[in-house]
Design a protein around this nucleic acid. Sequence first.
DNA 1: AAAATATGTCAATAGTGCTGACATATTTTT
DNA 2: AAAAATATGTCAGCACTATTGACATATTTT
Lengths: 154, 154
Amino acid sequence: MSEEEIITQAISSEDVPQLENIELLFFAYRDFVADPDRILRQYGFGRAHHRALFFVNRRPGLTVAELLDILKITKQSLARVLKQLIEAGHIVQSEGKFDRRKRMLFPTRQGRNLILELSQPQSRRINSAFDQIDPELREAVSDFLRSVRGEQSE
Amino acid sequence: MSEEEIITQAISSEDVPQLENIELLFFAYRDFVADPDRILRQYGFGRAHHRALFFVNRRPGLTVAELLDILKITKQSLARVLKQLIEAGHIVQSEGKFDRRKRMLFPTRQGRNLILELSQPQSRRINSAFDQIDPELREAVSDFLRSVRGEQSE
DNA sequence: AAAATATGTCAATAGTGCTGACATATTTTT
DNA sequence: AAAAATATGTCAGCACTATTGACATATTTT
């Protein structure tokens, strides 16, 4: 027993289809979030605040339940960051118009400004990546991203 | 003061170039890591173990310093997961051939098997996303990912 | 011999995720 | 009207991943 066989050969695309793209996606995302992470720390926030703030700006008036469904985290995880964003004046809540149990979430001017600041490096990064590829091929990238997202065991 | 101006209009691509693709990248990555996350939990591991194990399989014999540089985390963060991967028999260390201060990292057969298992859903996801787009446009996606990665304030 | 390097380890802290339980207000169903 | 369901908020506790700064050891370079 204890057959501690050691592997010295690198894993290859034959072992793992799309190995290269798996790796590229890791690196791309690592750097994609690194820039906003640096800014967030100056505000005492983290990545979770960024995501919540992003979608509240993207769909003002969305409810807590809708936001949970987008982020795919638990109520408790969201509660913490939402509370801090509200206390800091980046987001406000208001009762649902038709269902007063619901809380509609809106960004304040301050929250809008913050998401603009956080998005700048990401816009730049994607823009300059698009500069590298044929304009006619750019839609393929978005199509790709759209279908990487998706059920397939959600 | 306390001018709590509320914004009810959704942020748009005019405010933030590439807004759509920023959002798509979030969703793509969210789902891309969700599958392996489920498997990892059965082993008592987390996302950090996945990444370390991936690159040890990808470049067997790499040193701790090289791995740190790839992952862009601190020594202490890596130490914990590396220790656990070694104890669990997925990775082994050996002294550097020329510099005996260095530790070369290799996967065991078991570690190779685990990364194969973790990669399967990711391979499938990327493969089926590629199925959706013209074969001639696929290289554009890799080019895009390659250039999203990159300095620009590293 | 001294300085630099590679690794490992310790203690402490922060951020983000989880579970399960319980409370309140409100709406829907019976 | 009463009961059940829903939306939200909150509590306690836990796990994982990341951070910083300090220090120890072995080894290599200067």
